[in-house]
Amino acid sequence: MSEKLVALGTPPAQKAAKPKQKKPEWLKVRLPSGATYEKVKATLHDLKLHTVCEESRCPNVGECWGGGTATVMVMGDTCTRGCRFCNIASEKRPAPLDPDEPRNLATAVAQLGLHYLVVTSVDRDDIPDQGSSHFAECITELLARTPSTILEVLIPDFTGRTDFLDKIGLANPAVIAHNIETVERLTPTVRDRRAGYRQSLEVLRYVKQTYPHIHTKSSIMLGLGEQEDELLQAFRDLREVGVSVLTLGQYLQPSQWHLEVKEFITPERFAELQAIAEGMGFLYVASGPLVRSSYKAAELFVAGLVKRDREARQVTSFGVPIAG
C-alpha cells in the first residue's frame, strides 16, 4: 500500500487557498496511522480530552502518538488570547472549566500507559486565578495515578503572577516549559498584547530560581522575519534565566487570516543554529523544520535527564555517595 503525503499547514477537509510561497519538500509528512496512534486518539476523544496535537495540526502527531507520547490541552479548547500565529479558537469568556478533567486525564494516561506526557493549556484570563489551581490539580491527579509517567507541563504566563506559578511548581512536574515563541522585536506582532517577551523570561527565571530541581524549556518559531542577531540574543536571554532545553521549528501559517510565513528555513540552517545554541550551554537543542515545542527527540532526552535525577535522589536517600 502506498503511503500518502500531505503538505503541512493546509486544513485537510478544506480546499487550500492559493499559497503565496510553495512549501518545500522537507515540509511534507506521512499521514498518521497505526494501531497505537488509533488507540491514543480514541481514548482521548472518549474521555473528552483536547490535544494541542490536533488543534494545531502538529506534523509529528503520528510519530508521537504511535510511540507512546502525547500532548494534552487542559482548561478547554478555547483561549482568551488571540496570538496571530495560533490556530486555537479565541473568546473573551470560554466555557467553564470541566471539574472532571483532572480525573479523566489521569484515567486516560493510565489506560494508555504513556511513557512521556506533555500537558499544556489555553490561557484563561477570565478566571480569577487564570486556571492555575485547575492546572495544578491535573498535575497532582496524574502523578498520583501514574507516577512512572514523566510529566512535562507547557504553561501560560499567568500574567507573571508568582503565586499562580507556585501552584504549578509545588505540584512538582518533571519539566516546566513556557515559550517565548519569537524574538523580542516581533513579539507585539506575533503574540497577544498581554503576552510580553520580558514577562515570559521572568516566568522562566522565577520557576528555575524557585524550583531548581525542575528542568525548564522554551521554544522559538522561525520564519517570521527574525534577524540572526535577534535570534542569538533570544538564545542568550533564555540561557541567562536558566533554560536548559530549547526547541526551534518552522512557523507554518494555519490559515489565510494568520501571519504569513516570511521565509522557509532550510534544514541546513536549522542544524547551524542548533550548533550555535548548544555552544551557548543548552543541555539539549532540538532544531529542524518539523520540530515543535513538544517534540519526541527532545522528550527522549529530557526523559533521560529525569531518570538520572530520580536515580540520584534514590541513591542519596540510602546514604550512598553519588559517583562523579
Results as ranks from 00 to 15, higher is better:
Ser2Asn: 10
Glu3Pro: 00
Pro12Ile: 00
Ala13Thr: 04
Pro24Met: 13
Val29His: 03
Arg30Val: 12
Arg30Met: 07
Ser33Lys: 12
Ala35Ile: 11
Ala42Lys: 14
Thr43Pro: 00
Leu47Thr: 01
Lys48Tyr: 03
Glu54Arg: 01
Glu54Asn: 00
Ser56Trp: 01
Ser56His: 00
Arg57Glu: 02
Arg57Asn: 02
Asn60Trp: 01
Glu63Val: 14
Gly66Glu: 07
Gly67Met: 10
Val72Arg: 00
Met75Ala: 10
Asp77Ser: 08
Thr78Pro: 10
Thr78Gln: 11
Thr78Phe: 08
Thr80His: 10
Thr80Ala: 13
Arg81Gly: 05
Cys83His: 03
Arg84Glu: 05
Phe85Ser: 10
Ser90Lys: 10
Lys92Met: 09
Ala95Trp: 03
Asp100Ile: 04
Leu105Asp: 06
Thr107His: 06
Val109Lys: 06
Gln111Tyr: 07
Leu112Thr: 06
Tyr116Cys: 10
Tyr116Trp: 15
Tyr116Ile: 15
Val119Ser: 03
Asp125Phe: 05
Asp126Gln: 08
Asp129Thr: 08
Ser133Leu: 11
Ala136Arg: 09
Glu137Gly: 03
Leu143Lys: 15
Ser148Phe: 09
Thr149Gln: 05
Val153Glu: 04
Val153His: 07
Asp157Phe: 11
Thr162Leu: 13
Asp166Gly: 01
Lys167His: 10
Ala171Glu: 10
Pro173Met: 03
Ala174Asp: 14
Ile176Trp: 03
Thr182Glu: 05
Arg185Ala: 13
Leu186Ala: 08
Thr187Phe: 05
Thr187Ser: 14
Pro188Lys: 09
Arg191Cys: 13
Arg194Glu: 07
Tyr197Gln: 06
Glu202Met: 09
Glu202Asp: 12
Leu204Lys: 12
Val207His: 00
Thr210Pro: 02
Tyr211Leu: 06
Lys217Thr: 06
Ser219Trp: 01
Gly223Leu: 09
Gly225Tyr: 07
Gln227Cys: 12
Asp229His: 15
Asp229Ala: 13
Glu230Asp: 13
Leu232Thr: 09
Gly242Glu: 06
Gly242Lys: 04
Leu248Trp: 08
Gly249Leu: 01
Ser255Gln: 08
Gln256Pro: 00
Leu259Ala: 12
Glu260Gln: 12
Val261Met: 04
Val261Asp: 02
Lys262Asp: 14
Thr266Lys: 12
Arg269Asp: 04
Ala271Arg: 11
Gln274Ile: 05
Ile276Lys: 15
Ala277Gln: 14
Gly279Arg: 12
Ser293Cys: 02
Ser294Asp: 01
Lys296Gln: 14
Ala297Glu: 15
Ala297Arg: 15
Ala297Phe: 11
Glu299Val: 13
Val306Ile: 14
Lys307Thr: 11
Pro321Gln: 03
